[in-house]
Amino acid sequence: MNLKIKLTTAILALSTGITFAQQAPKTSGNPIAQGWYADPEAQIFGKEYWVYPTYSDRYEKQVYMDAFSSKDLVTWTKHERIIDTSAVKWAKKAMWAPAVTKKGNKYYIFFGANDIQNNNEVGGIGVAVANKPEGPFKDLLGKPLIDKFVNGAQPIDQFIYKDDDGQYYIIYGGWRHCNIAKLNNDFTGLVPFADGETYKSITPKDYVEGPVMFKRNGKYYLMWSEGGWTGPNYRVAYAIGNSPTGPFERIDLVLKQDMTVATGAGHHSVINIPKTDEWYIVYHRRPLGERDGNHRVTCIDKMYFDAEGHILPVKITNEGVAARKIK
């Protein structure tokens, strides 16, 4: 760099107050936040992106949740302890996989707690409410919303889907079984389907946990995680159906490890930029060489479709994504 360029650079830096070391990053980088975080739920509220992950640690230490917000997908702000067990008296450990939605002027967070192993234990899927996306969230019911095994599904890993007619569905399940149910208007309970059933099994082939649903071009996409969450083969697959209840036939893998980048890529959510066909996948993965099952980090990459509407395999990156503000 010659003297003239150096002087020009120095003048620009002084006039803007920004040095080259201080310039905003061009991409988000992966992971998007420091710390061990897994099972991320991604949402758009207004013109902000929000990510709600599980705090990844031993079950006895998973007694709170943090959130992260961004206006551009690149710079993220941490919101600490948006909910914890002091606000949910029946939750003692293993607060997992938040699902967040807005209804009216309220924000609702659904979560699994206590990792129940049978119908005699206290725990399952709870719901809490707040006036702001960063909380603080307070227990809505004082007890779990779903606290029993139905159709073999452990009551964890809930996802909330709002259909075009305004109906909210809860899709959930661990232990290789996936259920869907209709939420009532105030999220205090469930309402039966037209045939009288309250819970419908929509379990696709190879399903393990972590369901996600969205609609694109009139079709319903169901995504889920396969493999073991502590292993390198954790991955995401998908199916397409004509209704929220399917049927859903497994099509292919979408997300998996890349031994040059990271292992254990799974348990995700998706973001669609409003009024566009731009899609992002937010997921967790394990750093290369890591053997601690709890060392998971939250990342983001682009997601694309082919002309037939199939999801193309996601390329996981260290760079993450470029800045994208919501207009």
Score class of each variant (00 low, 15 high):
residue 54 T to G: 05
residue 55 Y to D: 08
residue 196 G to Y: 10
residue 159 F to A: 13
residue 206 D to Y: 07
residue 28 S to N: 06
residue 189 G to A: 10
residue 174 G to S: 11
residue 266 G to E: 12
residue 179 N to T: 12
residue 288 L to D: 09
residue 178 C to R: 06
residue 301 D to F: 01
residue 22 Q to N: 14
residue 19 T to E: 03
residue 216 R to N: 03
residue 251 I to C: 01
residue 228 G to T: 14
residue 103 K to D: 07
residue 55 Y to M: 03
residue 180 I to Q: 08
residue 323 A to K: 15
residue 188 T to S: 10
residue 141 L to S: 04
residue 319 E to R: 12
residue 37 Y to W: 13
residue 279 W to Q: 04
residue 9 T to H: 11
residue 230 T to E: 12
residue 257 Q to I: 00
residue 105 N to E: 15
residue 321 V to A: 01
residue 63 V to P: 01
residue 147 D to M: 00
residue 246 G to L: 08
residue 35 G to V: 03
residue 226 E to W: 01
residue 117 Q to C: 00
residue 176 R to H: 14
residue 164 D to K: 15
residue 109 I to P: 03
residue 238 Y to S: 07
residue 157 D to Y: 07
residue 112 G to S: 12
residue 119 N to E: 08
residue 171 I to E: 13
residue 246 G to N: 09
residue 238 Y to A: 04
residue 154 Q to I: 05
residue 87 A to K: 12
residue 86 S to L: 02
residue 130 A to I: 04
residue 277 D to M: 05
residue 314 V to R: 08
residue 2 N to R: 06
residue 30 N to F: 10
residue 270 V to R: 08
residue 267 H to W: 04
residue 308 E to Y: 03
residue 18 I to L: 13
residue 42 A to S: 13
residue 150 V to S: 03
residue 157 D to V: 06
residue 119 N to C: 07
residue 233 N to C: 00
residue 268 H to A: 09
residue 53 P to Y: 09
residue 208 V to F: 10
residue 17 G to I: 06
residue 302 K to D: 11
residue 62 Q to T: 11
residue 60 E to N: 09
residue 213 M to A: 01
residue 138 K to C: 00
residue 213 M to V: 11
residue 309 G to V: 02
residue 130 A to F: 02
residue 286 R to W: 03
residue 189 G to M: 08
residue 127 V to S: 05
residue 47 K to V: 00
residue 301 D to T: 10
residue 202 I to E: 05
residue 135 G to D: 11
residue 127 V to W: 08
residue 94 A to S: 14
residue 36 W to F: 09
residue 315 K to Y: 00
residue 138 K to W: 00
residue 154 Q to W: 00
residue 80 E to L: 07
residue 207 Y to M: 01
residue 307 A to L: 07
residue 73 L to K: 10
residue 112 G to R: 11
residue 285 R to A: 13
residue 198 T to N: 00
residue 17 G to C: 04
residue 233 N to D: 15
residue 133 P to F: 06
residue 283 Y to P: 01
residue 326 I to Y: 03
residue 238 Y to Q: 09
residue 65 M to K: 11
residue 165 D to E: 12
residue 106 K to H: 10
residue 4 K to Q: 14
residue 260 T to I: 00
residue 112 G to A: 15
residue 265 A to D: 06
residue 315 K to E: 15
residue 260 T to E: 11
residue 126 G to Q: 04
residue 319 E to C: 00
residue 94 A to L: 02
residue 307 A to D: 15
residue 164 D to Q: 14
residue 288 L to H: 08
residue 228 G to D: 12
residue 324 R to M: 05
residue 238 Y to N: 08
residue 105 N to P: 00
residue 215 K to S: 05
residue 172 Y to S: 14
residue 145 L to W: 07
residue 325 K to T: 14
residue 317 T to P: 03
residue 252 D to A: 15
residue 133 P to V: 06
residue 34 Q to L: 07
residue 162 K to D: 02
residue 244 P to S: 10
residue 61 K to C: 08
residue 322 A to E: 15
residue 269 S to H: 07
residue 190 L to Y: 01
residue 72 D to M: 02
residue 180 I to S: 09
residue 119 N to L: 06
residue 123 G to N: 04
residue 295 H to T: 14
residue 222 L to C: 02
residue 210 G to R: 09
residue 93 K to M: 06
residue 274 P to K: 11
residue 194 A to K: 15
residue 26 K to C: 00
